[in-house]
């Protein structure tokens, strides 16, 4: 392994003393400190997680949801386009006959493993029925066990879009 010798920065006395640079930095720190102390309402940092982010846009790819039809039943027809498109192969579907006459086919099982998902949005692009979306705005998910990160059909159907929640 070769060693690259980097030439030392600063040849003037001012640079070699270091102290002017330290005081220059301190000046910035102290000016921000006093400014924020005088007006606490304008601080840019957030008290996460007590305060959530406010800048999540409609295009943000959050946790998936399964959409509903007008009659509130599942829109998905289990065509497997999303799991075909999925690069992480994290969508597990089992299809079954739909009996209520609305359509012919529906998912019996529809699971997404969030730990495997890379949030690429390929499934949303691939869906021919607009049945899967990533517009929930959920960017964080917590669970005790690995198994709990696998969202089932009911959980995905219960997820709401960002607009609905507001």
């Amino acid at each position: 392994m070769g060693i690259k010798i980097v030439p030392r920065y600063g040849n003037t006395l001012k640079d070699k003393l270091y102290l002017p640079a330290i005081f220059g930095g301190m000046k910035t720190t102290i000016s921000h400190f006093t400014k924020n102390l005088r007006d606490t309402t304008n601080i840019k940092t957030q008290c996460y997680p007590e305060v959530g982010p406010i800048d999540i846009t409609d295009r943000y790819r959050g946790v998936h949801r399964l959409t509903h039809r007008e009659d509130d039943s599942v829109r998905c027809v289990a065509c497997f386009m999303c799991s075909t498109a999925c690069p992480a192969e994290c969508i597990f579907i089992e299809a079954t006959q739909r009996k209520d006459g609305v359509d012919e086919k529906m998912p019996k099982k529809f699971e997404i493993d969030l730990l495997e998902c890379v949030f690429c949005g390929g499934c949303v692009e691939a869906c021919p029925c607009d049945a899967i979306r990533m517009d929930t705005g959920i960017f964080t998910f917590i669970a005790q066990k690995r198994e709990d990160f696998v969202l089932n059909k009911e959980q995905l159907l219960a997820n709401k879009s960002l607009g609905e929640e507001k």
Partner: peptide, 8 residues
Amino acid sequence: DCPICDQA
């Protein structure tokens, strides 16, 4: 209805 057709 290719999405639900087994022949697709």
